[in-house]
Amino acid sequence: MPDTGYLVAVVAVAAAITLALRAAPFALLTRLRSSPLVTYLGRHLPAGVMLVLVVHLLRDLPVDRPLLALRELVPVAVTVGVHLWRRHALLSMAVGTATYALALLVVP
């Protein structure tokens, strides 16, 4: 069980680094706002960054064991399907997570 002083240090270190990362581009790029490159990145970054995150979250997918891989991929497909159909984020997440709970029962 970690002591309070250590946990306070963990929070302080993580908060300081996160804030520095978030502030850095504004400190360095105040005059680049209207550049065509920034406009281009603003248009094309969002989808790619989210997809890299999704692949990262699925990084431990056991590709050599199809049934276990499907246990993760089917709920992902259901989440996308429900979201494209109803475009309601919470509903998509709830149905996707329920599908995953079911998948855990079917493929333990």
Partner: peptide, 18 residues
């Protein structure tokens, strides 16, 4: 099953962004 909530969240955000 709550492990999947994080994945579902980013799947939804990615779907919207794409």
């Amino acid at each position: 099953a709550l492990d999947f909530v994080v994945t579902a969240l980013f799947v939804v955000l990615a779907t919207d962004a794409v």
